[in-house]
Design a protein around this nucleic acid. Structure first.
Lengths: 195, 195
DNA sequence: AAATATAATTAACACTGTTAATATTTCCAA
DNA sequence: TTGGAAATATTAACAGTGTTAATTATATTT
C-alpha cells in the first residue's frame, strides 16, 4: 500500500471516528458537515475529498457499529446455553443496545440512505444483522425442536419485526411511556414467539 | 363561535391542507415552512401565528390521514366476511396504503415529533390505529376461536410489528428489492400469524 | 376620523449541504 | 536544490432551512 493510500485511509478514519462519536452521543441530529469535520480536525469541505456526501459517511459507520453491538451483546449473553436460552439473552441485549444508543437505531433503520454508494449492500447488512447474531442458536433450536427450516425462517422474521417494532415505538413515539413497561412488553412478546 | 375563530380555523385549514398535499405527493422531504406557506397562500412567517412550529403542523395531519386510510381500506375490504377473512384484507390494504403513500408512513412512524403539543396523544393515536381498524374483526375471531383475550393482545401486537417491520424495510431500506417479493413475504408472514 | 389592536409580511439571523475559487502542500523532473 | 505541476486543504460563495424581530398593512375600537 502506498503512502498516499495510507494517508487517505487515515484521514477517512478521522472522519468516520468523528461521525461515530457524534452519532453515539447525540444521534443524527448532531450530525452536520461542519460538526463532523470540526471533530475530525479538518475543514468542512475536506469531507467531500473522501466521501460523496455526509449521508454516505454516516452509513459507512454501520459496519463498525454492528461490531460494537456484537461486543456489547457478547458481554451480556456470556454463560447462556446455546439455543433458546441464548436467543432470549441476545434479544434482550439487542434491545438494550439500541435503548442505550438510540442514534444508532435511527441510523440503522430510520434514516434515508445516500444516493451514492452501496446502499443495497448496506441494506442487506442491516436486514440480516440479527440473523447473524443468532445464527448458531437458531440452528441449535431448530435441531432440538425439529422445526422445519421454512418455519424457522418465519420465526426469524417475526423476531426481527418484533424487536424493531418494540424499539421503534419506544424510541420514536415514547410508547410505552416508561422503560419498565417497555421491558415488560418486550418480555411478553418474546415469550409469545418462543412459546 | 366568533368570526375571529372562524377565520382562524379557516386559515389553519389552508396550512393543514397544503401540508397534507405535499406529504402525500412528496413526503416529508417536500415539507418546508416556505413551501407549505406558499401552497397555503400566505407568507412563510404567518405559519407561526397558527402553529408552534412546522413539526407541530405536520403532526396535526395525522388524524386526517388516518381517516383517509380508513376510507382507502374500507373500499378494499368491502365484501370480506367479518373475522379472519376481513383481518387479512385489512392487513393487505394497510400495506397498500403506505406503499402508495410512503410519506405518510414516514410521518406516522419515523419522523421525530414536535416538542410542542400533544405528542403523547398523537403517539397513542398512531400506536392504536391498527387496533381500531381491526377492532370488530378481532372480536369475531376471538369468539370464533375461543382464544383468550391475553393471547389476542399478543396477536394484535404481533400483527402491528410485522406490518410495520415489513413496510419499514421495504420503504426505507428497499429490502426486499421488488414489490412482488415484498407481497410474497408479507403473505407468508401474515399466514404465520393467523395459521 | 383617529387611535389602537391585530394580523401579515419583510428583514434578519444562524445554520445547513454543497460547489467553486483560492491557497497551501506535496511531488517530480531537471 | 529548485521550479513547476499536481494534489490537497481551505475559504468564499451560494441556495436553501427554521425561526424571530421589526415593519407594514389591515381590522377594530373609540
Amino acid at each position: 500500500m502506498e503512502r498516499k493510500q495510507i494517508q487517505e485511509q487515515r484521514i477517512r478514519g478521522y472522519f468516520v471516528q468523528a461521525a461515530k462519536d457524534i452519532l453515539r452521543s447525540e444521534g443524527l441530529k448532531g450530525i452536520s458537515v461542519r460538526n463532523v469535520a470540526q471533530n475530525a480536525g479538518y475543514s468542512y469541505a475536506t469531507l467531500y475529498n473522501y466521501f460523496s456526501d455526509i449521508r454516505f459517511l454516516v452509513f459507512e459507520c454501520v459496519r463498525d457499529f454492528q461490531e460494537e453491538c456484537d461486543t456489547f451483546i457478547a458481554e451480556r449473553v456470556e454463560g447462556a446455553a446455546p439455543g433458546i436460552e441464548r436467543l432470549r439473552a441476545i434479544s434482550k441485549a439487542y434491545l438494550d443496545y439500541f435503548v442505550e444508543y438510540p442514534g444508532i437505531f435511527e441510523l440503522f433503520y430510520l434514516e434515508k440512505m445516500s444516493a451514492y454508494g452501496n446502499s443495497k449492500e448496506t441494506a442487506e447488512l442491516i436486514y440480516s444483522y440479527l440473523d447473524k447474531l443468532c445464527e448458531n442458536d437458531w440452528t441449535v433450536y431448530s435441531v432440538k425442536t425439529k422445526i422445519s427450516d421454512e418455519l424457522i425462517d418465519k420465526l426469524k422474521d417475526q423476531l426481527r419485526y418484533t424487536l424493531i417494532g418494540l424499539l421503534l415505538f419506544y424510541l420514536n413515539r415514547h410508547y410505552p411511556g416508561t422503560y419498565e413497561e417497555f421491558i415488560e412488553r418486550s418480555e411478553k412478546q418474546l415469550a409469545y414467539i418462543w412459546d
